[in-house]
Design a protein around this nucleic acid. Sequence first.
DNA 1: CTAGATGTTAAGGT
DNA 2: CACCTTAACATCTA
Length: 261
Amino acid sequence: MPELPDVEYYRRYLESTAMRKKIKSVEVQNAKVLEGVSAKKLAKVLKNKKFTSTHRRGKNLFVSFAKDKCLYMHFGMTGELKYFKGDEKEPDHARVLFGFSNGYRLAFMNQRLLGKVSVTGPADEVIAEKDLGPDALEISYEDFKKGIKGKIGAVKSALMDQSILSGVGNIYADEILFHARIHPKTTPKKLSGNALKRIYRNMKKILEKAIEKKADPDKFPRTWIIPARGEKEKCPRCGGGIKRIKISGRSSYFCPRCQKK
DNA sequence: CTAGATGTTAAGGT
DNA sequence: CACCTTAACATCTA
């Protein structure tokens, strides 16, 4: 479920596994995930290099392997990384496999093929090209306030706008608004300073807690709404029924009793 | 069989 | 122009 907490977890996972080992091979199982680079070129560029550092902005992951050169990964709606012993069978949906000199392999997994792997320049360059806003964990309250207030539509859409702040997606936006007790369709203009602060504080709190729990919903507190994504579920706070509405074409789950406009 | 599922983006509308 | 919504992408599951 790759939103900010998942991608941050993958970044840390990479740091503790595939870094600083010589890359011996790159095997592309499905070229649909490649963007702007062929399988051949990817292998050629990475061969005998080492991943030296990692960087994340929102849901985008960068792994440096040379001066001003990064392996860029975006997971789309599905995906994860797995580092495993080379003689083991690769996991399901492995789309790109990186082989290292110690015999281990790293799999970029991506069931629905909406993810992307490419070779880019420095992260800052890509961030500017893609017009990504500050990371949700880094953004100042002033920038947050300005960005959200400048939007006309639903506050949830604003939270998910990667050019205002990057990293919040459909699932965590619901969680943040649930804790801030704000109806997801609320117009940003109507938000009081207090309400906006509640959203900001809860955003940081939720994302940090999710990272701590390795972005695994099974480990999330019972007070969260993520495990209750379903119209037959009960609100963990008041016990009322959870409702589903569409916002920007995506499903929003919320508690109509706790979250008023 | 159908609808919906964590993201992004092109295209069309206001 | 700035912003909004929808459809499409590919695959799997309830």
